[in-house]
């Protein structure tokens, strides 16, 4: 019981770390088109990347303070909304970031492929036990 709770907590923390960098890439990539916060969250969700509001909005502000995003308040459907999109700096950084992502992804795919883990979350040792 205790072990399960501990391993679940460890998994949650690792998942959080794994997601942190991915979310930045996803948000920057999605904001090559203008979005307001709620619409951006829905767009990410539609692509299978759910993100909590409490994560998204502080992230948007951090990226904006780093100069990667630009924002403006504008009225849409009779309501004031804050629209975000990539800034010139963001447009410059995003391709480099995506290239880094592709390299990491390819390296990880090679590592997993060599160990027979590419298509299955089960470790080879666990597979042998099952057989």
């Amino acid at each position: 019981m205790h072990t399960n709770a501990a391993s679940s907590e460890i998994f949650d923390n690792l998942r959080l770390e794994l997601r942190r960098g991915c979310l930045v890439v996803a948000v920057l990539a999605e904001l090559d088109m203008e979005h307001y916060g709620y619409a951006l969250r829905k767009a990410l969700d539609d692509h299978g990347l759910a993100i909590e509001e409490n994560t998204l909005y502080p992230l948007l502000r951090r990226l904006e303070s780093q100069g990667l995003l630009a924002s403006q308040w504008r009225e849409e459907e009779k309501r004031n909304k804050r629209f975000y999109r990539l800034s010139p700096l963001g447009e410059k950084v995003l391709p480099d970031l995506l290239e880094e992502w592709r390299q990491m992804n390819a390296a990880l795919a090679r590592i997993l492929g060599e160990r027979g883990l590419a298509g299955s979350p089960v470790l080879p040792s666990q597979r042998k036990e099952e057989e």
Binding site: G37, Y38, E53, Y57, R79, N80, K81, R82
Partner: peptide, 13 residues
């Protein structure tokens, strides 16, 4: 600024 954005998000939700 933050509260205005948060209010808008809550309303949409």
């Amino acid at each position: 600024d933050i509260i205005a954005e948060l209010a808008e998000d809550l309303r949409s939700q």
